[in-house]
Design a protein around this nucleic acid. Sequence first.
DNA 1: ATGTCTCAGTCACTGAGA
Length: 283
Amino acid sequence: MRVATWNVNSIRARVGRIVDWLVREDIDVLAMQEIKCKPEQFPREPFEAAGYELAIHGLNQWNGVAIASREPIDDVSTAFAGMPGFAKGQEGENLPLEARALGVTVAGLRLWSLYVPNGRSLDDPHYTYKLDWLATLAADARDWLAANPDRPLALMGDWNIAPTDADVGDPSLVPGVSTHISPPEREAFEEFEKLGLSDVVRPYQPEGYTYWDYKQLRFPRNEGLRIDFILGSQPFADLVTHAGIHRNERKGEAPSDHVPVVVDLDLSLNGEEEDDDRPMIFG
DNA sequence: ATGTCTCAGTCACTGAGA
């Protein structure tokens, strides 16, 4: 099974090349971010004609997440527990939620499409929102992992964080000023690794960016960022046989500014059923 | 020069967001 994540930067603007890629690359599940539309505006037909069913969460022209799958989608969630909202000039609880998280179960895998808030700048309210959002997500992931230690879980999406200096090729990012590279953001990312969620792509693809700004010839100059990640629980990581970044999707007509990130899974390694007949050696 | 791209609102542009 092939599972991927892609910040598509408007599904309506490039549905053709996205579905073409899904079919060409034999992708089973795609987590999308920045669909930039409501569910009723989502171009369902090309996906359904190609054999995918859809879960869509979009509230307006901003943000928006969706998941396309060749296998049935169950247990759809449009927010994680305690997810904070945002409203300009307001603080506190119960602010309106944005469409940035979508959880589903497919083939026994728990999968989330996540669009982490951008942060804008270190002194912007969106930066605090970003850190709150990540801390709350980590708390929910901790609870879920404690309750489901044997289940494959993947948090997939645009994290808007470059975890290491090697992930930063865009010279416009200034330490101490810019988001995506600040120590609190990197610490927020590391919290997920402390929970036992690991970047399942990097072992197979150690180098490379996943995003290049449209401006300033960032792609031709290869001045990008690695900010799109698939973090898997140990039971998920145990299924991974290969992974990669599809850099070519930044080329050609009307690309997104992000490219897809793909993992190959061998679900036959998921031994739950097969193990039932084996003798219990421990415990 | 935020030098590009997308969308909404409203109808050739501007504002917002990234």
